[in-house]
């Protein structure tokens, strides 16, 4: 424990004295980047890369969306940034430090400054909403008693669920569970918040609430957010920058307005939800008529 804390202090000292490497993208030179992804290639097995030569920058204080169809490698990219996976080629830098070169302790020190909201919340099923939010605080700080209680209730209040503190995850609706998970994610005021499909499976009302929370928490905490999603309209309403990925490559990046106006064929199909286009409706198959006759 003491060793991890020392490592964390060293990490903070180092990063504060460091000038952030400026991005290779000329339009973002004015704001320092919190996360930089440079030429990253990754595959779970060698022959079939999931991500190919990804370049991406996330400036401080911004909300960035990574969009794309299911299975295009968005979640994998988040895991690479969190250090859960290591790239085959290329480099991921957080606060200017390469994630690849971190020791296990350095990685944990970095993760204590990150928060990640998982796809279905991933609340600990054996702990109440209160204990879920308190989990990280208890693990990483010496806060106990009234102070801990106040902090946790404050976080729950921020997502509007102070009244549900005593409920177990099984008693929460999908939208509420997602909000409790969000409160847990921000329990230690992370500098980087990552959202893995925060809108998946929510009713329209909860969808709006979660979307609003992502934006307002980011601004209130002075944090930086990365939202991985395929809910186009929700995402476009709250983010500053969009990266559009397809088949493991970044196809397009720009502001929400640029996305709406874009003539990029596959992005246009994606953004407007058209059933057929560059991504065909049909899975590749032999000719229909032939297939039917051939079966007889």
């Amino acid at each position: 424990m003491a060793r991890i804390e020392r490592a964390a202090r060293v990490a903070v000292r180092k990063s504060s004295g460091l000038k952030f490497a400026l991005s290779s993208f000329p339009d973002k030179v004015t704001i320092p980047n919190l996360v930089e992804v440079e030429g990253v290639t990754f595959g779970y097995d060698r022959r079939r890369p999931i991500l190919r030569d990804i370049d991406m920058v996330v400036p401080r204080g911004r909300v960035v969306a990574i969009m794309g169809l299911s299975g295009c490698g968005k979640t994998t990219l988040l895991r690479l940034i969190g250090g859960a996976l290591r790239p085959d080629r290329g480099e991921v830098r957080v606060e200017g430090r390469s994630v690849k070169g971190l020791s296990a302790e350095g990685l944990y020190a970095m993760r204590r400054k990150m928060g990640m909201l998982f796809q279905f919340g991933a609340l600990f099923t054996d702990l109440s909403a209160f204990d879920n939010v308190a989990f990280q605080v208890r693990e990483h700080t010496a806060l106990r008693g009234a102070l801990l209680r106040d902090l946790v209730l404050m976080k729950l209040d921020a997502v509007g669920l102070r009244g549900a503190a005593h409920l177990m995850p099984s008693q929460l609706s999908g939208g509420m569970a997602r909000r409790v998970a969000l409160a847990r994610t921000i329990a230690l005021d992370p500098m980087l918040i990552m959202y893995d499909e925060p809108f998946a499976g929510l009713d329209p009302l909860s969808l709006g609430v979660v979307g609003k929370l992502i934006r307002s928490l980011n601004d209130a905490l002075g944090a930086t957010s990365i939202v991985v999603t395929h809910d186009v309209q929700e995402a476009l309403a709250i983010v500053d920058t969009v990266y559009y990925m397809s088949l493991g490559k970044v196809e397009f990046h720009g502001t929400p307005e640029q996305v709406r106006a874009s003539g990029h064929p596959s992005l246009h199909q994606f953004a407007h939800g058209e059933p057929d286009g560059p991504v065909p409706f049909h899975y590749p198959a032999p000719d229909y008529a032939q297939d039917l006759l051939g079966g007889a």
């Binding site: 991890i4 993760r111 998982f118 990280q136 693990e139 990483h140």
Partner: peptide, 22 residues
Amino acid sequence: GLMKATEQLDAMEMMAVDPIAR
């Protein structure tokens, strides 16, 4: 197994808490 399937172990890992120890 359920904790793994519902990403609770991954979440713990991302909170800098070692699931093997905890």
